[in-house]
């Protein structure tokens, strides 16, 4: 399998109390479980990222529960309210139990 590389984009700095945009992208096949093998006719088992979690200094930002109809290489855009400087932690969990993590810090300007 290709190397899975999570990407997180958010501003480097923000004012206290500001709401900033966060964008994330991860490469993952997101095999929906709807396809069949063209030669054998066997159903290809589902292999998707089923949970995405984002937290900031240990507090929950968002949690997304994904199903097979989310496109491959899942992209998300959401918002973060910045009260203090800290680190945004993002976590992707797939059906094989693999956990992919990434983080990005933000400072108060």
């Amino acid at each position: 399998m290709a190397i899975i590389k999570p990407r997180i984009k958010l501003p480097k700095t923000a004012k206290a109390g500001e709401i900033v945009t966060v964008k994330t992208l991860i490469n993952h096949k997101m095999e929906s479980g709807q396809h069949r093998n063209q030669d054998t006719g066997e159903r290809i088992p589902r292999m998707i990222i089923h949970t995405f979690e984002a937290s900031f200094n240990g507090k929950e930002v968002v949690t997304f529960n994904l199903e097979g109809s989310v496109s491959e290489n899942p992209y998300f855009l959401f918002f973060l309210k910045v009260e203090e400087a800290g680190e945004l932690m993002c976590k992707w969990i797939d059906d094989e139990g693999s956990v992919f993590e990434g983080s990005k810090s933000i400072a108060i300007a």
């Binding site: 937290s55 507090k59 968002v62 949690t63 529960n65 199903e67 097979g68 109809s69 992209y75 855009l77």
Partner: peptide, 22 residues
């Protein structure tokens, strides 16, 4: 499979808005 995704917004989510690709 009609269910696509559930977005849950926590205390620091700022606003209840999200985007993705389906």
């Amino acid at each position: 499979a009609p269910k696509i995704i559930t977005f849950n917004f926590g205390e620091l989510s700022g606003k209840s808005e999200a985007s993705t690709r389906i």
